[in-house]
């Protein structure tokens, strides 16, 4: 299901600015944000942290069958990216040559439209990545 507007709105700060969490106790980084550090639990101290804008591809897939609101984008590339602070995220990879999208490829952050709710409706924005050649 497409996201309800309040949820989309709540997630704007973290998606627009790639804001995650860092645990001051163990140093681990998380994206998206968490309220409790799974390593430290109540001993942990999570603070909001800007994630680095570069990282590398850990795995990828080219998606041919998509949810209806992504239909016009197919085929598109998804990847799991490990950022330079070792936080990981799932993202679309765009503006990149197909043969460059592979494990280990360096990527950098882009800010993009993710989908349109409807022709007159809300537009969801967020992060995508591209391969740095």
């Amino acid at each position: 299901m497409k996201e309800a507007l309040p949820l989309m709105w709540r997630n704007i700060p973290e998606r627009y600015n790639l804001l995650g969490s860092r645990c001051d106790t163990c140093g681990k980084n998380y994206f998206p944000q968490r309220k409790v550090c799974p390593n430290c639990r109540r001993k942990g101290k999570l603070v909001e942290a800007k994630m680095p804008e570069t990282g590398k591809i850990v795995s990828y897939s080219e998606v041919f069958v998509a949810p209806t609101w992504f239909d016009h984008e197919t085929p598109y590339f998804l990847a799991i990216v490990e950022l330079d602070n070792h936080a990981t995220l799932l993202t679309q990879v765009v503006d990149s040559k197909r043969e460059k999208i592979k494990e280990g490829a360096r990527v950098e952050l882009l800010f993009r439209r993710i989908y349109e709710d409807s022709p007159e409706g809300a537009i969801a924005y967020g992060y995508k990545f591209k391969v740095v050649s």
Binding site: M1, E3, L7, N11, P32, V58, S59, Y60, S61, V63, V65, A66, P67, T68, F70, E73, Y76, L78, A79, I80, L89, L90, T91, Q92, E103, I114, Y115, A124, G126
Partner: peptide, 29 residues
């Protein structure tokens, strides 16, 4: 879309990850 509810709506489906795509990421690695 209903099945994608088995994953994380806010970080997976939001970015266009269907259920086969999630397993595809495991398969590729």
């Amino acid at each position: 879309v209903a099945l994608a509810g088995a994953g994380d709506q806010e970080s997976e489906l939001f970015n266009g990850a269907t259920f086969p795509a999630i397993y595809a990421l495991m398969a590729r690695r």
